[in-house]
Simulated assay, not measured.
Amino acid sequence: MTTLIQQTHVSVLGLGPMGRALASAFLTAGHPLTVWNRTPGRADDLADRGAAVAGSVGEAVASGQVIVACLTDYEAVRAVLDPPGADWAGRILVNLTSGEPAQARALADWAAGHGIGLLDGAILTPTPAIGTPATALLYSGEREAYEAVRETLGALGGTGTYLGDDPGRAAAYEVALLDLFATTVHGVAHAFALASAEDIAPEDLAPFAAGIGGLLSEMVTRFAGQLGAGHFPGERSTVASAATTIGHLITAATAHGLDVGALTAAKNAADRAVAAGFGPDGLARMATVLGGEGAGAERAAR
């Protein structure tokens, strides 16, 4: 498989907000572009800029050398591509659809069974960043496929990081990072809800909440080092103190009728860690007591 040249013809499947951003970036970089979307009418501005609008998935695949899929989920990718309706010889499928690691590996098996070169990816930045230096993308799967399309994918801007030949690796990073994002957003929303219940105006809380947010970057780096070393010093804060604090939060939130599901889950995890003898440890220890791989980490740490 040879590296595709700079002006590779790209076909984009799916014109949701992210798919449109990807298509626009390829056009801006000067790539010939074909687009397809299940619902007609979303490609008019792209057509005005020179994109060809395919009437079918098979037509879009036949037109391009690099086929970029950005659809609702992995099931949608399989639904539009199976059975393959075009000759995939010399073409590479780059799947930038969000999903689970197991789904990425299953798609790779399907692609291999149909002679389709596949590179699976994860987009870590919002649509406005696509095509700018702020873009961050992760890729995993066949190295040969990655090397073939790396220059073409440079049109998306920023940094693209290849994580290895496990096709589920990019999705694994993505779900872990989205876990952080989702729970953080919930925490921010819950904090404002609790503040409002106590008659604190959002704009009054915001400067202090931003200060709390600023602690997270340092905490992430520190936790990673402690988890790698298996050493969890408790001189800053301990699991036991966190369990007590979360208990106070649950009491305060419950008094105002707020949902405490997430706080209860956090309290249960902290209580399990204390019961296991980890109360004096630092907060990074919590990553080892959350079940699954964490349970193994807990046993190893002991």
Rank of each mutant, 00 (worst) to 15 (best):
E198Q: 15
F26G: 06
T221P: 11
A253E: 09
T238V: 01
A111P: 02
N95Q: 00
F278E: 10
Q103I: 05
G50F: 01
H248K: 12
G154H: 04
G141S: 04
A51R: 10
A176K: 06
D82F: 05
T251H: 07
G141K: 03
R49I: 04
P280I: 01
A145R: 09
E75F: 08
A266T: 14
S24G: 12
L4D: 13
G115H: 13
A111L: 05
A195K: 02
V57A: 02
A269T: 14
R20T: 13
Y146L: 09
Q6W: 14
R272S: 11
A104I: 00
D45G: 11
D73K: 08
A54V: 05
G168F: 03
L27D: 04
A191E: 08
R272N: 11
Y139F: 08
S63A: 14
T221K: 12
G141H: 02
T183R: 08
G292L: 10
E59R: 04
R49N: 11
A195V: 07
T183I: 11
E144P: 08
A265S: 11
D165E: 14
L124D: 13
A47S: 14
E298A: 12
A284H: 07
T28G: 07
D259L: 05
I123Y: 07
L290C: 11
T132F: 01
I5W: 06
I212H: 01
Q7P: 09
G99S: 00
L249F: 15
G30Y: 12
L119E: 00
A102F: 05
E142H: 12
P202R: 01
G213R: 06
R49L: 14
V80M: 06
V53S: 07
Y146N: 07
G294H: 12
A47W: 10
A170D: 01
N37T: 14
L180I: 12
R272K: 13
S196I: 07
G247I: 13
T244E: 11
A273Y: 12
G64I: 05
C70S: 15
A209W: 13
T72Y: 10
A47N: 15
M1D: 12
N37E: 07
T221V: 13
V185C: 12
L137K: 09
H190Y: 01
G230E: 09
R38E: 04
A301S: 06
V175M: 15
A269V: 13
L22P: 00
G99K: 00
V289R: 10
L283E: 05
V149Q: 09
A295V: 07
A134T: 08
I123V: 15
L27T: 03
A170R: 07
V149H: 06
I200L: 15
A25W: 02
W110A: 01
C70N: 14
G168W: 00
I200T: 05
V12I: 01
P32Q: 08
G168C: 05
R42P: 06
G261R: 03
S63H: 14
D179G: 04
E75I: 09
T264E: 06
G292F: 05
L22Q: 00
G121T: 02
P101N: 04
Y162K: 10
T8P: 09
D259G: 05
A129F: 10
A136P: 07
G164N: 14
G131I: 05
G168R: 00
N37G: 14
A295G: 12
A21K: 01
H186F: 11
G30K: 09
A52E: 13
S237G: 10
R38K: 12
A111F: 01
E203Q: 08
G121P: 00
V289D: 13
A145I: 08
D165G: 05
L258E: 06
G187V: 08
